[in-house]
Amino acid sequence: MELQHNIWNKALPFRSTNYTQSILKICYEAKAIKDSDVLAFQNTYPFIYYLEHGEKYFSQVQTSPIEIKPVLLFYGMVQLMKACLLLNDPHYPETSQVLAHGVTTRKRKKSQYIFLDDEVKIQKNGLLTHFSDKMFHVKHFSSEKYKMRLLLRQIWETHSLFTQIEKKKKPSQLHISNVAVKLPNKILDDYQFGPSSFCSYLSERSKHSYKPKLDHQTNGHFLITINSPISSIQCHPFLYDGIEKYYLSPYKSDLLDIPEVIAHYLILYNLSMICRYETEWWGELFHHYPESDYPFIYKFLSIAAEKVPLLLFLLIDKQISDASRK
């Protein structure tokens, strides 16, 4: 999987304190935050260190045994999320509440445990909820529990395994412009919706509003209009492949209203807890290959090592770009 070329080069300009301070000031001034000069100065080194520590975690993943990769990936992701927050929230961490992970998992795994059927539970406070609020304006999750199988299906690269192992249908590729989305007619058959109901279903799970363009149905496709451009970091419920192509699952039950980066966080949190505290099951996973868990976990870890930094640097870029235009 080649999602990026030297993604960590994006962190290089921030090794300049003058540049980092100027960027923080621009972001704070765009939000009309009081004492933006002082806050930008105070947050310069924390921002640089968050990126630096994140890069060190991710760089270790390349040479570490798979058994410890979830911990490295999770804490590397946490560091990059904190850098994102510092662009948006100059007082982070303002309280100890936002230092918690913001998610929990079952303390002890049941007998005949299957990772794909496991679930995590969202907590009211913590890094996850604070990050979701500040980055995506999501203050409350529509569901308090999420199964691993459903979270994995929010990630385009996992669908090839679902097709092979579970005989699922492949996602359909979309053609997206700033004002419209072109979809194959078979999507309507898969969802058992007409164009209007389909658009309503999408809109309920998205930050965008969709409407059917009924006079444009040609060559087995139909068009729906968008109220604002779709970005790669907030394209849900569409799937992003990392190189500017978008897809849609043929199963309406797959459609969640959370960005892909949140799905990565929830899966990595669970895996990092399992590899630390469920040592027996984790060890057996790499020797007996129970159920279908191993290929999905292996695939996901290889995806997350590349795609998590990509998504978070895209988020950093967007924050800076949005602030610079104000």
Rank of each mutant, 00 (worst) to 15 (best):
M1K: 10
L3M: 01
Q4A: 14
N6R: 09
I7V: 15
W8V: 07
A11M: 03
A11I: 01
L12A: 15
P13V: 07
R15Q: 10
S16P: 10
N18L: 14
Q21L: 13
Q21P: 12
Q21G: 11
S22D: 14
K25S: 11
K25W: 03
C27L: 05
A30V: 11
I33H: 05
K34W: 08
S36N: 05
V38G: 13
A40L: 05
A40K: 04
N43T: 02
T44Y: 06
Y45C: 07
F47A: 02
L51R: 09
E52P: 06
G54Q: 04
F58W: 13
Q60F: 14
P65Q: 08
K69L: 11
P70E: 06
V71Y: 02
V71R: 03
G76Q: 11
M77S: 06
V78L: 01
M81C: 02
L85N: 03
H91V: 11
T95N: 11
S96D: 13
A100T: 15
T105W: 06
R106I: 12
S111F: 10
I114F: 05
D117W: 03
D118C: 00
E119S: 15
K121S: 11
I122V: 02
K124E: 11
L128E: 07
H140S: 13
E144V: 13
K145N: 11
K147A: 11
K147L: 08
L150P: 04
W156H: 14
S160Q: 10
F162N: 05
F162D: 10
T163P: 13
Q164P: 07
K167A: 05
K167V: 02
K169P: 08
K169F: 10
K170L: 12
P171G: 01
P171F: 01
Q173V: 07
L174A: 01
S177D: 15
N178I: 10
N178P: 08
P184V: 02
I187C: 11
L188A: 12
L188T: 12
D190L: 01
Y191Q: 13
Y201E: 14
S206C: 01
S206A: 01
K211L: 01
K211S: 02
D215P: 04
T218F: 15
N219D: 15
G220K: 09
H221G: 00
F222S: 05
I224W: 10
T225V: 03
N227H: 04
P229N: 03
I230G: 04
S231A: 09
C235N: 09
C235Y: 01
H236S: 15
D241Q: 13
K245Q: 15
Y246P: 10
L248V: 14
L248Q: 14
L248M: 15
S249Q: 02
P250M: 01
K252G: 05
K252M: 15
D257I: 10
I258M: 14
H264G: 09
Y265I: 08
I267R: 02
L271K: 04
S272D: 07
S272A: 12
I274F: 02
R276E: 03
T279V: 08
E280Y: 07
W281C: 08
E284F: 14
L285N: 01
S292C: 06
Y294S: 07
F296G: 15
I297N: 07
S302R: 04
S302P: 01
K307I: 02
K307P: 06
V308P: 00
V308T: 04
V308W: 00
P309C: 11
P309S: 07
L311A: 05
F313W: 03
I320E: 12
A323N: 06
K326H: 13
K326M: 15
